[in-house]
Nucleic acid binder design. Structure first.
Lengths: 349, 349
DNA sequence: ATGAAAGCGCTAACAT
DNA sequence: ATGTTAGCGCTTTCAT
């Protein structure tokens, strides 16, 4: 090995040029092509020749250059891109994990990027990924329009949209049964006698949120209940504003007897507001979370890892040549009763 | 635009070859190099010429080929690799998020891979990333030896290790003050009068775990307390075995009056075991978590996002040519009292 | 079983 | 302001 470190522990200056296959071949005393064959385990290399080439490569610290290989083989990488919101949100990281595990089965590598929930940045990231010739692109979209991607789809870069359908583009999509889950949550509360039910929702312009709001409203309408209307709050986007919103709701007179929060962030905020409340309202949250069982929070659960896995599966089928109409997979939901959603309204409420 | 979809919504078969810069140049009636200049916003292109080239590119659905560019520019990508455990663990996703945000400042892109806590897979992933000519490699190592990477470091691919120092290799590293945090937690419990303190730790072969165990033991020794010894449990690796272990500890006679769990998974398990316990022991957990405030769990907190950010910073400095001795950054910890760690032992205990 | 030549798509260096 | 030539490091094609 050449000097990786000086005796004093100093890491040497970089910038040595990496050895090339030509150098390996020269050192081994064979032609370029023979060296290539040996290092790629191709047939028709004599045992002894192969050994010589591998020794030379080890000696030089040689590694095949994936960039040159990919260029020669058709300028398409083994990378699949994922563009989503911040991975500290457990929903996105669960999705990413599901994708990653599925891709690995097929020797593909996940590249992630955070769109910061910004449409312009998202567009730029998509461009960057396409320049880098990703094999497929998975997007949890923030942007409102994706028609500009149509020509890419036709060139063999499959797109799969997660959580939110694309706008102006007909592509594979994996979504949650938002309306169904919200309807089930609403019915769960109605069945226990609640009428003044507050709905705390995130940005109403986002399609999944709209689905959850509409599912909730459908259930209310179907039951002939309209006492929820004064307690509708939308465009609550982070934990602290959710906490504030819930405090305000509980200060009303009459106050709601139950809450439905439409994602994990808002549920966290609600739990903060309800902490140490002497007589907390019933609560159901969309999205399951790690400690829900410990806290006793009733949730609308769904399998975010499966969502990622299915999306990766769809993408891989397209990569493998599947063509045909755009497909749509719906991830089902289920209400998991853990106590908070089963609290009845007080007598007379 | 050429047919992206047929009238029936069918996505057409892929495999059309992508247009090249040569074709764009031909269509625009300029030379290859002029087209290159125009699309890269280089100087010395006439306004009108630039427009013509861009129109031609749009018309053909052309995108620069990042692979060819990177080959020509020196076979080094704009990618930085991260190899860590599963991103559904909030610790890893927080680290990834910190890295991602820092890299973005410098136009670098994060590529993630999950080592599944397996040393062989980790080695293979490192090889794959190096073949792909990543600019830097960030590793939360699982493997026991990294000496084989020394020659890479000398070739200008900077390595930064997170959470666990590399073995047999002198490279930049960012770690948590494990011993200090554990010592503080132990003292916190000792101060409140606890003597029979249980320690529930993950795999003892992992360096961060060893640091936490040793910090705890140091504090015990310093206080002259040795009643903790029967309650030491290590190699508890997942939520359900942590739950089981804590149940077993509490069934002992005498039972411990306090617990210290050495990471977020184990704390979750302990919380499950303690749920609905009539007289729970005191509890402090290493790693903060979202709902700790709601549940009232005292923790040893540290900034995992900052850890990622610092690691990315170190890597970027090396990419930018910094050479010099390997550096080591220690992320500090603090005990956040939220109730569970302040419960005193029962009188007489 | 091995080798020579061509070229993937682009940018750098050097004209003009 | 634009064009020409060479070549990044590899794999492919076609010899031998």
């Amino acid at each position: 090995m050449s000097a990786a470190r000086s005796p004093d522990g100093t890491v040497d200056a970089p910038a040595e040029r990496r050895p090339t296959l030509t150098q390996v071949a020269a050192l081994a005393g064979v032609s370029l092509k023979t060296a290539s064959r040996a290092l790629n385990s191709e047939p028709n290399v004599a045992e002894a020749t192969g050994r010589r080439v591998r020794d030379a490569a080890d000696h030089l610290g040689y590694r095949l250059n994936g960039i040159a290989r990919e260029l020669r083989r058709g300028a398409t990488s083994a990378l699949v891109g994922l563009i989503s919101g911040d991975l500290t949100n457990p929903f996105y990281s669960a999705v990413a994990s599901g994708i990653e595990r599925e891709l690995r089965q097929h020797g593909l590598q996940l590249v992630t990027a955070n769109n910061d929930e910004d449409a312009e940045l998202e567009h730029a990231l998509i461009d960057a990924f396409l320049e880098r010739r990703v094999r497929a692109l998975l997007v949890v979209p923030s942007a409102d329009r994706h028609a500009y991607l149509a020509i890419e789809g036709s060139r063999g870069v499959p797109f799969v949209f997660l959580d939110r359908p694309p706008v102006g583009l007909d592509a594979d999509v994996v979504v949650i049964d938002n309306a169904g889950g919200a309807r089930a949550a609403a019915e769960h509360l109605l069945t226990r006698g609640h009428r003044r039910i507050a709905l705390v929702a995130d940005l109403a312009r986002m399609v999944p949120q709209r689905g959850r709001i509409e599912g909730f409203q459908q259930a209310m309408r179907a039951s002939g209940n309209d006492e929820w209307a004064p307690f509708l709050r939308t465009d609550v986007h982070d934990v602290s504003s959710a906490e504030r919103t819930v405090r305000e709701l509980l200060a009303l007179d009459p106050a709601p007897t139950a809450l439905f929060t439409t994602n994990n962030r808002l549920t966290t905020g609600a739990l903060r507001a309800l902490k140490e409340h002497p007589d907390p309202p019933a609560l159901i949250g969309f999205d399951d979370f790690d400690l829900a069982e410990v806290i006793g929070t009733t949730v609308v659960a769904h399998d975010a890892v499966a969502m990622g896995r299915e999306a990766a599966r769809l993408a891989f089928e397209r990569i493998s040549g599947h063509s045909g109409p755009a497909r749509s997979i719906v991830i089902s939901t289920s209400v998991i009763a853990r106590g908070s959603g089963e609290r009845a309204p007080r007598i007379g409420d």
